[in-house]
């Protein structure tokens, strides 16, 4: 299943709830303010890193760029995708859940 999250992990529990409920092997795509979860050295970094052992985490490139998060500020191992990659993920997964 593809899970999309769009809320900042510092301002909402959406990501935490999503990570708690996502089955192993899920794809998790961070978009809009949720891309802050892709930053290294933050209060939620360890939560995201531990989720990466069972799920694949993606982040939308244009949303990262809009927020000034370059690859040097990111957790390594998070996959960057463009809008085409977003569509690809939505098509290859049988279901999509948006954690609004």
């Amino acid at each position: 299943m593809l899970h999309t999250v769009n809320k900042s992990p510092f301002d909402s529990h959406s990501l935490q709830t999503c990570l708690g409920l996502a089955k192993a092997g899920s794809d998790i795509l961070l978009i809009e303010d949720a891309v802050y979860a892709a930053m290294s050295g933050t209060a939620v970094t360890s939560m995201v890193e531990s989720a990466m052992s069972s799920s694949t985490i993606y982040a939308l490139e244009s949303d990262l760029r809009a927020r000034g998060i370059g690859s040097e500020k990111m957790i390594s191992g998070i996959n960057l995708v463009g809008y085409d990659g977003f569509v690809e993920l939505a098509v290859t997964n049988d279901k999509v859940q948006s954690w609004l």
């Binding site: 490139e61 949303d63 760029r65 809009a66 000034g68 998060i69």
Partner: peptide, 10 residues
């Protein structure tokens, strides 16, 4: 106030 914000692509 984060440096380097670039919204051109979005």
């Amino acid at each position: 106030l984060n440096k380097g914000q670039d919204t051109a692509d979005s």
